[in-house]
Design a protein around this nucleic acid. Structure first.
Lengths: 236, 236
DNA sequence: TGAACACGATTTGTATGCAATATGTATTTT
DNA sequence: AAAATACATATTGCATACAAATCGTGTTCA
């Protein structure tokens, strides 16, 4: 019988991961070894190993003699992100369609059901986490050890970007989000049919939608104020 | 004045890295914490952090309660490698051509000079390491945090594959290797000219050459034996 | 004879104490 | 008064001791 109770180390690892993905721990936040080890009930030695692991996966940055910080998100990273994401994710879905195994497809379908559920009555946090899990599974399906490191790194910032831009502020955004869920369905169908080309195309579409959503946020429509009397001061 | 003497930890990290890249530590080899910490003159705590870091970068695999091993290389990894490498390296060189800065180009040229030197009178080990450094620099030039994890992972096995297949066993291989050096020159030229398309194309070529070299090894030409008397047993 | 079990030895995982480095504050010096 | 410096404090890095798990070996039992 395999151990059912997860070790404090695993708990800590998972907790930090999700806290970072959901922006509960914001980019650049300081991670103090002493307080964290106290919080999770383990000594500093294993905690440091957790931080080292998170650093290797891109969740945190380590600075010599100056502790760990949640990895930063700048505007340049946003640009780099959309350069890399379509290519990597296209390749992942292509391979996923070729190599997916039955149980994995079941897992994906179930996760998609959870995603729709989260869209209806879940928090932004829950949506981002389930969506993240959905894409993780496609990565497992592809099963290419050389593509996974970058893919996993992309997923981290994908979740964090989602947390910033995913909340439906208005009806337009709400439609956008439900469109994303429909794309997930089409992705599942392509994978189940083993249609690699279709899957790759859907990956590109998925990112175009995501990019569009963010462009709307970064470049909002004008405020539609009438030209005329220039304001003397800030109008309450 | 910055510390000129590298810490034992860094020394250990670098030594393990190069030992793995050059196959001095073979894939699957056990890494014992006690003996390693003794060898490099540090205690087990920092040594374990080094191993964790190497694991995050793909040099070693960690197994719970059962120590670290040099990461494996199987035939499936060889296939996955050639699926991922052209795409990733193509993207890296494309971005390198767009973003390379002056000092980096100088660094690349100097490394290429060292590579040619190693081809003339260096060991297989030295060739693989300098070649590895050459490609590392192109990765630095590209400077995309999302592509680098996969790229670095590829470089590890690229070096190890090179160590297996790079030694010029015959004249044909020797020509092959010198062709690789010429490709490096063309890559430098494309980067210096800022020609992204050209750079991407050269990346594909570079991997085709590499794949060809390995196919020759894995699938050697027939032994050219005359059909006729079937052998009764293994012929000495 | 073979399989299961128990025990000793080896190796990994964790906790704690100490050393080294960085930070913040108060004091001194110009 | 401003800058530099020295000192106290807090935090990271490392070494050692101990706990837990694994592995090899010899023994017992079917």
């Amino acid at each position: 019988m395999p151990d059912s109770t997860p070790s404090p180390k695993d708990t800590c690892y998972q907790a930090l991961k999700t806290a970072i993905l959901t922006l509960e721990l914001q980019p650049g936040a300081d991670l103090d070894e002493a307080s964290l080890s106290a919080e999770f009930g383990l000594s500093r030695t294993p905690l440091r190993e957790v931080l080292r692991r998170l650093a290797g996966e891109g969740y945190v940055d380590l600075r010599l003699n100056r502790g760990a910080r949640v990895s930063e998100m700048s505007h340049t990273t946003l640009r780099d992100f959309f350069l890399a994401a379509p290519m990597i994710y296209g390749a992942i879905l292509q391979l996923a369609a070729q190599n997916a195994r039955g149980p994995q497809i079941e897992d994906l379908k179930q996760t998609q059901a959870r995603f729709r559920e989260a869209l209806r009555k879940g928090s932004a946090r829950e949506r981002a986490l389930v969506n993240n899990r959905f894409h993780e599974i496609t990565g497992e399906m592809a099963g290419n050890v050389y593509l996974l490191p970058s893919f996993r790194r992309l997923l981290i910032d994908h979740a964090r970007i989602s947390m910033t831009f995913y909340r439906p502020r208005d009806d337009d955004m709400a439609r956008n989000v439900s469109e994303a869920a429909d794309q997930h369905d089409r992705i599942i169908a392509a994978i189940e049919a083993g249609d690699a080309d279709k899957a790759a195309t859907l990956a590109i579409d998925h990112w175009n939608l995501s990019r569009h959503r963010i462009e709307l946020f970064v470049m909002p429509g004008g405020l539609d104020l009438p030209l005329g009397a220039p304001p003397r001061a800030a109008t309450a």
